[in-house]
Design a protein around this nucleic acid. Structure first.
Lengths: 202, 202
DNA sequence: ACCTGAACACCGTTCAAGT
DNA sequence: ACCTGAACACCGTTCAAGT
């Protein structure tokens, strides 16, 4: 059992986050508890409350890490893709692959619900916003002088859509199987939506 | 405290489901517990286990009721709409309105995750399948002789997409506000996707 | 000063015992 | 036969007390 001053506040915090992530990766959100995290790092549960506000705070920190990794993956793709359409399709692929390769951490972002009335903190919303910014940027060359409002809307439609397909697929609620099918559905969504978005009918 | 033979098994079951739904509507999924349901109907918690397999079973029954109401709303719309495109747009509206008017029950369908390895029962999957069938039927007049496989795929893309927009909107993760915006996004998704789906580019 | 460990108010689930 | 109530193994959170 760890004793006083074995680790700094910051060290305990990092150890706890690492241990918690390991639990989530292996057992999913349901398997996570403050007591298990404490046990894994050799401290008692009370110690966690010196370092985190509460369990929601700890979860939010892990989700922030996950969002950062997803953002990095998207930003990388963005740099390599050729035209807007290719970028959009690649962004969709990156998202689906991310969710498929790390389903437990990805799911936790959406399974975790804040208590009634509580809002996501500003620094966290910022992480979501910058992902939409990437999608909007990829859309720009396809928007042909449309107002920014419409580009922002299209980004949210496509991203919400990709996300929804991914959710239903992971929850096995689409009557389909396999990642390839999910990739197919996502590509279909993006392709056909862009056809309408960039096409003559406006 | 209720005593023996005050109610039949079936009556206790109905009372429990009604009480549980009331809790969910008022407090959301998080507020639901076997002990609270038992208390609300004047029985001890042990009694619930004579009538339900476990708490997951009870939740699944409530979700089934919710799916039935959603299905009824969709089937009604289907009967009144004129052409395929109108039907699709109306189905989207019905879905968003349903989620908006009954967010706690709607959310519970997706917040509830089965234990690792457990599958949704066949009778439940059937309820999901028949909703997709409505969407596929509305798509038919727009599919112009395409193989059923493609129609099924398009139905899943659109429905997954509408769902995803709805999820992100309810979780306040889109940086938008209000039901009207969500309706706008949904209509944009359906319109533009259909433009690509029915358009020349295929 | 730092952390523990016990307490409090909750969970889901089971099952011997009471009526 | 039907239901209880207590037990078991868990939760998140707090805080007086120990080192």
């Amino acid at each position: 059992m760890a004793r006083r001053s074995d680790h700094s506040r910051e060290e305990i915090r990092e150890m706890a986050l690492d241990a918690a992530e390991k639990i989530v990766v292996e057992k999913g959100f349901e398997g996570l508890s403050a007591r298990k995290v404490a046990k894994a790092i050799g401290y008692t549960v009370g110690t966690l409350y010196l370092v985190f506000e509460n369990i929601d705070d700890l979860i939010l920190q892990i989700n922030a890490r996950t969002l950062d990794r997803l953002y990095a993956g998207m930003a990388e793709t963005q740099a390599t893709a050729r035209n807007g359409r290719q970028r959009m399709l690649q962004l969709g692929q990156v998202y689906i692959r991310f969710a498929d390769q790390d389903p437990h951490r990805w799911s936790m972002i959406f399974e975790h619900r804040l208590a009634e009335g509580r809002e996501l903190p500003e620094w966290y919303r910022e992480k979501i916003a910058r992902m939409f910014a990437i999608v909007e940027e990829a859309l720009m060359p396809l928007a042909a002088g449309r107002p920014g409002r419409e580009v922002a809307q299209a980004a949210r439609v496509i991203w919400g859509g990709v996300h929804g397909i991914c959710i239903l697929a992971v929850g096995n609620r689409l009557g389909i199987a396999g990642v390839d099918s999910v990739q197919d559905l996502t590509q279909s969504l993006i392709s056909n939506y862009l056809a309408g978005f960039t096409g003559p009918a406006g």
